[in-house]
């Protein structure tokens, strides 16, 4: 880069990188803690399916649609079981038990944790969002986030009307996972096409378009996990300096506002929306340590926030 352009462009680029303040203060690892954890968990979910075909050590067989772990634990996609039921088929006991286990787990953990911590499509759409932020692309065609509920309704009604598990004809979640698990992603199948379509949709058509607006699987889990236990709390919201970094990284930015800015309206700091995928990126990027992971029963007030950080915050506030 020429010395003339450097100063003009540097601040602009900085502005486009949410989390830079946190990164500078605590280092890269701390500023990406939950992101790294999440990627590890996502990779782990894939790994348990892959050890068998790759090395002959079978941990989990099947795919996210339905699986069997260590020959004892059946797990079934509950939305799939619901569609099947509506289509007029009652699954085998193991399938139904599996669906009940998954349903209970996500209802307990809460929010769209599946989306943030298990779904392979999340990696694709997060990448698209990262590119959009990095290059400052404006939202092209804003859509209503309730569209996904409409699609979910359509999928369920469609299953009943056609007597088939309708969503499986197009579901990028199971298609991508299946292709990864069976090693057929680059075999010229539908999975790659659909994955590319989702990527391009999120890149060029609508910001956070797929997961945030259209995917009925996410909508389903948002309903299931609406009363879940694990929640993010904007416990330290008084320290917020409106840098907007959390809004920039949040895949469901509408969930932050009431918790972060609701003090004057008497709204607690807990992010209670089922749309929150518990991804923890807000926790990562915030240089003011506003957010923490906590439970629905404890908004985190009074919980220990790191001492030195607090001091820094107050110091800055006085300035």
């Amino acid at each position: 880069m020429s010395p003339v352009r450097e100063p003009r462009h540097a601040p602009v680029r900085e502005k486009r990188r949410p989390g830079l303040d946190r990164l500078r203060r605590d280092g890269w690892l701390a500023a990406h803690k939950w992101l790294i954890l999440r990627r590890l968990v996502q990779a782990g979910f894939l790994a348990v399916f892959l050890t068998g075909p790759l090395w002959g050590v079978w941990i989990t067989k099947g795919t996210f649609a339905s699986s069997m772990t260590l020959d004892v634990l059946p797990l079934t996609d509950p939305m799939m079981a619901l569609q099947s039921l509506l289509a007029g088929h009652v699954m085998e006991t193991s399938g139904l038990v599996g669906a009940a286990i998954v349903l209970a787990a996500y209802a307990l953990v809460g929010g769209r944790s599946f989306c943030g911590w298990a779904c392979p499509v999340n990696v694709i759409t997060d990448f698209a969002a990262w590119v959009r932020t990095r290059f400052g692309l404006k939202d092209a065609y804003p859509m209503d986030r309730r569209l996904r509920l409409l699609i979910l309704g359509g999928v369920l009604a469609g299953s009943a009307a056609t007597g088939t598990i309708v969503w499986e004809a197009v579901n990028p979640v199971t298609m991508l996972h299946r292709a990864l698990v069976t090693g057929t992603l680059f075999g010229g199948g539908a999975a790659l096409s659909i994955t590319i379509a989702v990527l391009l949709f999120d890149l060029g058509v609508a910001s956070r378009g797929w997961c945030g607006h259209l995917c009925p699987v996410g909508a389903f889990y948002a309903l299931v996990g609406a009363k879940g236990v694990v929640r993010v709390s904007a416990v330290n919201r008084d320290a917020c300096d409106n840098c907007m970094d959390c809004f920039a990284v949040c895949p469901e930015r509408q969930v932050i506002t009431p918790a972060l800015r609701g003090a004057k309206n008497g709204i607690g700091p807990l992010i209670l929306s089922g749309d929150c995928s518990n991804c923890g990126r807000c926790v990562d990027v915030c240089a003011k340590d506003v957010f923490i992971f906590t439970t629905r029963f404890h908004d985190g007030a009074g919980a220990s926030v790191r001492g030195p950080a607090k001091k820094v915050l107050q110091g800055e506030k006085m300035l």
Partner: peptide
């Protein structure tokens, strides 16, 4: 009725000892 029941999980494919079964591509 098959498509009202099959969730396309591939468990049958995994347990086929002769690699007879495959999961369909388009």
């Amino acid at each position: 009725e098959f498509l009202s029941a099959c969730v396309r999980c591939g468990l049958c494919v995994r347990d086929c000892p002769y690699n007879t079964l495959k999961l369909a591509e388009a």
